[in-house]
């Protein structure tokens, strides 16, 4: 459908007002809300994600694309609810205790939403207990921990430990990320996944949902 390609294309250009109009136009044409979401909005976001991984686009391009996606999703939401379209799973996300940086965390959140995952954002300075509580309350499959500082990254170990101590370690996949984080650190604390960028994080999260 030409209009779905247009939605995807305008989304990639970060043109939120036009994406909004085109989504409405697609609905008016009688297109299925799920199809508009997946073949229009999520398709465009997926392309931006791939380009981001290859360093072909940078943070601002991703942010404006995600904004355009959210504008489109807002129009679609009532139709999606009516059609009974459910999210692919729930992820709890936050920046760990002591750390107040959220640019990377917000980017991951947007990318996860771009894959159709429901994201509960706990913000910054999130304690291990808060991660556990929110994961339980929201029946989350995924817990995403972010840290920008080498001074705070060790807090991620406390998050993993808290899930073990509460007997629910096997209920969630714990993902870690942020500038100082590495695969060897992820392995050393017993987390499930480290990804180097927000788009790869979304791919990994989606794989955990299936």
């Amino acid at each position: 459908m030409a209009i779905l390609d247009e939605i995807s294309s305008f989304l990639q250009q970060g043109r939120a007002p036009i994406v909004k109009e085109k989504v409405q136009e697609a609905l008016d044409q009688g297109l299925d809300s799920k199809e508009i979401l997946e073949k229009g909005l999520l398709d465009g976001m997926g392309i931006i994600g791939e380009k981001f991984k290859k360093n072909e686009v940078f943070v601002p391009e991703v942010l404006i694309a995600a904004r355009a996606m959210n504008a489109g999703v807002a129009i679609l939401k009532p139709y999606l609810v009516e059609a009974g379209v459910q999210s692919k799973g729930t992820a709890v996300i936050g920046t760990v205790k002591g750390d107040l940086h959220d640019i990377g965390k917000n980017l991951v959140k947007m990318m996860l939403e771009g894959k159709g995952i429901n994201v509960i954002d706990l913000g910054v300075d999130v304690s291990a207990d808060q991660f556990v509580q929110s994961a339980v309350d929201n029946n989350a499959k995924i817990v995403c921990c972010s840290a920008l500082l080498t001074t705070t990254m060790n807090e991620m170990k406390n998050v993993v430990t808290a899930f073990v101590e509460n007997g629910i370690r096997d209920k969630v996949k714990i993902m870690v990320g942020g500038a100082p984080i590495t695969q060897s650190f992820c392995d050393s604390i017993g987390a499930d996944s480290y990804t180097a960028d927000a788009a790869s994080a979304a791919d990994a999260a989606l794989a955990f949902c299936s």
């Binding site: 601002p60 107040l100 640019i103």
Partner: peptide, 20 residues
């Protein structure tokens, strides 16, 4: 680079951390 409307949004995003 991204037009006036997006520029305001992006600057807002850039300033988010300062609130923390």
């Amino acid at each position: 680079l991204y037009g006036e409307e997006n520029a305001e949004f992006l600057l807002e995003q850039d300033k988010l951390w300062t609130k923390n």
